[in-house]
Amino acid sequence: MKWTGSILLALTAPSSALIRFQCSQLVVERLDPLVTPGEIPSPHVHQIVGGNSFNATMHPEKDMPGESTCTTCQFAEDFSNYWTAILYFRARNGTYKRVPQRGNAFFESATGGGMTVYYMQDPLYDTAQKSKVQAFQPGFRMFIGDVNARSKEEAARFRQLTYTCLDNFGSREQETVAFPDRICNEGIMTSLRFPTCWDGVNLDSPDHMAHMSYPESGTFESGGPCPASHPVRTSQVMFEVIWDTRQFNNKEDWPEDGSQPFVWSFGDPTGYANHGDYVFGWKDDSLQKILDTECYVDCKGAKLQSMEEMNKCSGLEPMVEEDIDGWLTQLPGGHIAS
């Protein structure tokens, strides 16, 4: 799939635009229209936020914004879909229980906890946001991570998929690439930062990653340049998801060998297989307008909706009927921790 429209490479007039917003949970089920389109159910459970046109197929030629009637995200013109795997607790007796989520700071009333989404022109700590970036185009989609990774070496090519053990709800330091191996008083936050260099042509690729690249040298945070193969600089999309592990903090319930008890819905007990999916769905040129506007979090002219309006869009009827919330002898889809 290719985008044939013109690309604005000569970008001028620095602005400030850091977009940070909450999305309530749309649905939790085994669907994955990016990696396994049309497969009902998909191999493992995901939590999805965003536009309510989400379905098992989501063909890139279809008009996503036009098909959605609402979105669980604060920006009313963002009908994109964002999703991650679900976290489970593995008890000492070998059974599994889904870990609930918490809304981020100031977003505690978001249905299902959902996730916080960022679009950044520059590093999060640089509030000036001086760079100019190209918005994604209709039909664009991408994936980050490796569901088969079980070691630090296998996960190394994905530079920014991390965990933060929340000693308090405001903790944002000491990120790790594996699951924390200790009790986290207020939960575990996962952060997924997508690559920021686009080839300028392809809206997708067979692995959903090759059309995007990390900077040629350095990182997004250090302002590293894009490689010649991927010359178009995009905003960095980042997800923050807070898993409410507080009810599982009794170590007597943890595996007898003392190992950390959490496992992704596809069976990864290491955390190295953290991954996320993104399907673009902003209406018209609304994202580019925001990226070109001098703003910080709240952008002039952007159409925002209240938490109550977001939450009304939650609760999409699942297409897959199965128990994902009880104490389970195996993970949905037949997975076990391995």
Rank of each mutant, 00 (worst) to 15 (best):
residue 106 F to Y: 05
residue 106 F to D: 10
residue 106 F to I: 14
residue 106 F to R: 08
residue 107 F to C: 12
residue 107 F to E: 06
residue 107 F to R: 03
residue 108 E to Y: 00
residue 109 S to T: 01
residue 109 S to R: 01
residue 109 S to Y: 06
residue 109 S to I: 07
residue 110 A to S: 07
residue 110 A to Y: 00
residue 110 A to I: 08
residue 111 T to N: 12
residue 111 T to M: 09
residue 112 G to Y: 00
residue 112 G to Q: 01
residue 112 G to M: 03
residue 112 G to D: 02
residue 112 G to N: 07
residue 113 G to S: 11
residue 114 G to N: 00
residue 114 G to H: 03
residue 115 M to S: 09
residue 115 M to W: 02
residue 115 M to F: 13
residue 116 T to M: 11
residue 116 T to Y: 03
residue 116 T to F: 00
residue 118 Y to G: 06
residue 119 Y to R: 14
residue 120 M to E: 14
residue 121 Q to E: 03
residue 121 Q to Y: 00
residue 121 Q to S: 13
residue 121 Q to C: 09
residue 121 Q to N: 15
residue 122 D to C: 04
residue 122 D to I: 01
residue 122 D to S: 11
residue 122 D to Y: 04
residue 122 D to G: 12
residue 123 P to E: 05
residue 123 P to F: 08
residue 123 P to W: 09
residue 124 L to V: 15
residue 124 L to S: 10
residue 124 L to A: 11
residue 125 Y to V: 11
residue 125 Y to H: 14
residue 126 D to L: 04
residue 126 D to E: 13
residue 126 D to H: 08
residue 127 T to V: 10
residue 127 T to W: 01
residue 128 A to H: 13
residue 128 A to D: 15
residue 129 Q to K: 04
residue 130 K to H: 11
residue 130 K to C: 14
residue 130 K to P: 15
residue 130 K to L: 09
residue 130 K to N: 14
residue 131 S to P: 03
residue 132 K to L: 07
residue 132 K to F: 09
residue 133 V to W: 01
residue 133 V to M: 01
residue 134 Q to M: 11
residue 134 Q to F: 06
residue 134 Q to L: 13
residue 134 Q to R: 10
residue 135 A to M: 12
residue 135 A to H: 06
residue 135 A to W: 05
residue 136 F to L: 12
residue 136 F to G: 14
residue 137 Q to Y: 08
residue 138 P to E: 10
residue 138 P to I: 10
residue 140 F to T: 08
residue 141 R to H: 14
residue 141 R to N: 15
residue 141 R to Y: 04
residue 141 R to M: 13
residue 141 R to W: 06
residue 141 R to P: 15
residue 142 M to V: 07
residue 143 F to A: 12
residue 144 I to L: 02
residue 144 I to M: 03
residue 144 I to G: 08
residue 145 G to D: 00
residue 145 G to C: 05
residue 145 G to V: 14
residue 146 D to H: 03
residue 146 D to A: 07
residue 146 D to G: 06
residue 146 D to W: 01
residue 146 D to V: 11
residue 146 D to I: 01
residue 147 V to R: 07
residue 147 V to W: 04
residue 147 V to N: 03
residue 148 N to D: 13
residue 148 N to Q: 02
residue 148 N to H: 14
residue 148 N to E: 04
residue 148 N to W: 04
residue 148 N to Y: 08
residue 148 N to I: 07
residue 149 A to F: 00
residue 149 A to H: 04
residue 149 A to V: 05
residue 149 A to T: 04
residue 149 A to L: 10
residue 150 R to T: 15
residue 150 R to C: 12
residue 150 R to V: 15
residue 151 S to H: 06
residue 151 S to G: 09
residue 151 S to Y: 09
residue 152 K to E: 13
residue 152 K to I: 09
residue 152 K to N: 12
residue 152 K to P: 11
